[in-house]
């Protein structure tokens, strides 16, 4: 399991897998809305088109921030695939999300600024929950190294998975929690001033960002049999994506105060409750 080429293969598979997942999500959303929906490969078509278009820029800084964002996210994903430290992954990915905000702030557009501001709020809302979830895993396992995690975490930390659902919804830009990319309010939020290949780069960074969260969630299921582990993890991810799509289609968007409040309070409360239960039973403990 711990061979380096296995990690590399996993890393190379990330983007196609996330693209397919997003395509599946778009079809599912369309079907929930009584529509047929795009082909499964649609996210790849979009990406291909974006890289083929002319890029218009407000300033050179945008490119730097977009590329830095992609680099940081790819680094973080690589680390996760190679079985590295969860904390380092988390902070690298967080820095990558921050690059998007900086890129949006660097352009002189009110929509871009408002979008960046909301993106920051979202980061404030979900990072603590994500961070606490990682702490909970580390606390139970006694280590933050991905390749030395063992045991079926979903059995002992089920509330942590629940707490991660709002985080997933924010990262997948789904209502009720899609503040920054609220189409009808801010058009495309932080992405507004990117076009063509630069938009493609930010999209890729977003795919990696999503992959890190889904990859982390998938760690919660392990089985002795490698095949069963794979199947279970895939099922877990697809189940969560379906759940997020259904919630997206039955709710309106919340306002920013409500988003921060619900994500943080529910998330922190769930993770905290789970840790208290574990402590009561005397399980786990970071050495």
């Amino acid at each position: 399991m711990n061979e380096w080429y296995f990690g590399l293969a996993l890393f190379l598979l990330t983007l196609p897998a996330i693209g397919l997942l997003l395509g599946f999500d778009r079809i599912l959303t369309a079907r929930l809305q009584n529509r047929v929906g795009p082909p499964l490969w649609q996210p790849f078509f979009d990406l291909a088109k974006l890289f083929d278009k002319e890029g218009l820029l407000m300033n050179k800084g945008q490119v730097v921030f977009a590329l830095m964002g992609l680099l940081l996210q790819a680094c973080a994903m690589g680390l996760l695939c190679m079985g590295g430290d969860l904390l380092v992954t988390f902070f690298l990915s967080g820095a990558g999300s921050f690059m998007l905000v900086l890129g949006a702030f660097s352009a002189l557009s009110p929509f871009s600024h408002l979008g960046a501001h909301r993106e920051l709020l979202q980061i404030v809302a979900y990072e603590p929950v994500f961070f606490l979830a990682i702490i909970a895993v580390g606390w139970y396992e006694g280590t933050f190294m991905v390749d030395s995690l063992e045991g079926n975490l979903i059995g002992v930390l089920p509330l942590v998975v629940l707490a991660l659902i709002p985080v997933l919804m924010i990262k997948m830009q789904k209502s009720p929690l899609d503040l920054a990319t609220a189409h009808q309010e801010l058009v495309a939020g932080p992405y507004v001033e990117y076009s063509g290949p630069y938009l493609g780069i930010t999209k890729l960074a977003h795919w990696f960002e999503l992959a890190i969260l889904l990859g982390f969630i998938s760690l919660f299921y392990t089985n002795d049999d490698a095949l069963w582990t794979l199947m279970g993890r895939l099922l877990l991810i697809i189940g969560l994506v379906v759940l997020v799509a259904v919630i997206d289609n039955t709710t309106a968007r919340l306002t920013r105060g409500a988003v921060v409040l619900t994500t943080m309070t529910i998330g922190i409360a769930l993770v905290g409750a789970n840790l208290i239960i574990l402590a009561l039973y005397g399980l786990g403990g970071l050495a």
Binding site: L32, Q33, D178, A182, E185, D248, N249
Partner: peptide, 10 residues
Amino acid sequence: TIGYENLFMQ
């Protein structure tokens, strides 16, 4: 406009 796309479609 309030982000309830499914209701819009219905």
